[in-house]
Design a protein around this nucleic acid. Structure first.
Lengths: 224, 224
DNA sequence: ATTACTAAAAAACGAGTAA
DNA sequence: TTTACTCGTTTTTTAGTAA
């Protein structure tokens, strides 16, 4: 079953009290609550069960169910997402700590063929260097994973006499609520989902007085 | 498409910023966000659109969408439901005002064949009469509609020499957080979804000092 | 009473593709 | 590039029913 649907059924079970204790839940009863047939209700519970979202047991011919910790976590994550959708529509908020990169950023960003494209997309020629941020916790890492799955604006790769310079995608962003810039994901990035690279017109470390380990917030625009 | 699913896609659109303004949303992009194919994303938007949850328009070959007021209301109702699921698991809260019924309640409740069944289910012989409550607003009416759709405990009808006394269903309830009782729905109820009938061992008007128009809260247990 | 299997019907999906 | 149609395939659903 669809994960989207599973969540909604879990919420229904929580409404019935199944988030805090074992509840008697005959499939005929669940059918009414879920708005499906008895057979489908039976199958839903079994699928939730095989995903370990729900614990079920039979007591003298009756089904009793309880949402597991995993199921509750699944719903809570979804509630977080909904809250975030209302709090930060059109944006992904990333928080982390300033960290040293491998220093390659400067070399790449300075390439004229990249500079022109950044100017087209972001409206400025970026400072030759990237600010690397190590994300704070798994929540922001998952947010980053979501962001990175989106297309963003395309930066095309190019070929010189010597070698090939790979493509990238970039998202418009605001750093510390003050500076306009971009978040860049190189197609062949050496970083995992815990690191993001930020570009801006200014040298951010100086402009914002940042040093390694300083906490930093980036508000990234989802839309194109 | 399933209403459950529609809501989740609406939330995704709100996350993208489509709850507050028209956003550019090519179906290829939505496909990534929704986790479906481009064709399915296209179909989802068209279905949301034909349900008037979403307004869509084409600007030079690109799809732009915005969640409508109806769509936002749909999601907000769902968020209310989720909050309620966490706040009042296993219960439906009904609020309303004490109101005069048609006085028939006393006649029915006093019938011995009903009394015995109430005793079996609720544990007491109810006072011969029902307290009628006019629900406060559409929210509680919809809660009542949900409750009434559930099976509850069955009260069987019976036949006397003269006539047939119809069946009913009853839910365990707490009135004003103090008195234990039940909410009764006669199968052939003369009331709509804006009225509920409450029974208890005591004469509630006297016991709780209630008069017509007084606000009253009932906490109804969903489970069986 | 229950739950849940089977089989047939209905709905949803995505590849290919037209416009 | 887009969107969205057709159509074959897969998935989901429910009626009937056994246990």
């Amino acid at each position: 079953m669809n994960r989207r649907l599973m969540r909604t059924y879990l919420i229904d079970l929580i409404k019935l009290g199944g988030g805090e204790r074992l509840i008697r839940a005959p499939t005929t009863f669940l059918a009414i609550v879920f708005g499906v047939s008895q057979q489908t209700a039976s199958r839903i519970i079994n699928e939730l069960c095989s995903n370990e979202y729900v614990y079920k047991t039979m007591k003298n011919g009756n089904l009793w169910v309880r949402v597991t910790e995993k199921g509750l976590a699944e719903v809570e994550e979804y509630i977080k997402y909904i809250n975030d959708a209302y709090k930060h529509p059109g944006k992904v908020i990333l928080m982390g700590y300033v960290t040293k990169g491998l220093g390659e950023g400067a070399y790449y960003i300075s390439k004229r063929r990249y500079q022109i494209q950044f100017k087209d997309i972001l409206g400025f020629y970026p400072y030759p260097g990237t600010l690397n941020i190590r994300l704070k916790d798994p929540y922001y890492i998952s947010q980053n994973r979501f962001l990175r799955s989106l297309p963003g604006y395309r930066i095309k790769g190019f070929r010189t006499r010597d070698r090939y310079f790979g493509g990238a995608k970039v998202f418009k962003a605001t750093i510390q609520g003050k500076v306009y810039g971009g978040v860049v994901y190189a197609d062949r990035s050496i970083y995992g989902f815990d690191i993001v690279e930020v570009v801006a017109e200014q040298y951010l470390r100086e402009h914002l007085g940042l040093k390694d380990g300083d906490e930093i917030t980036i508000e990234v625009s989802i839309n194109q």
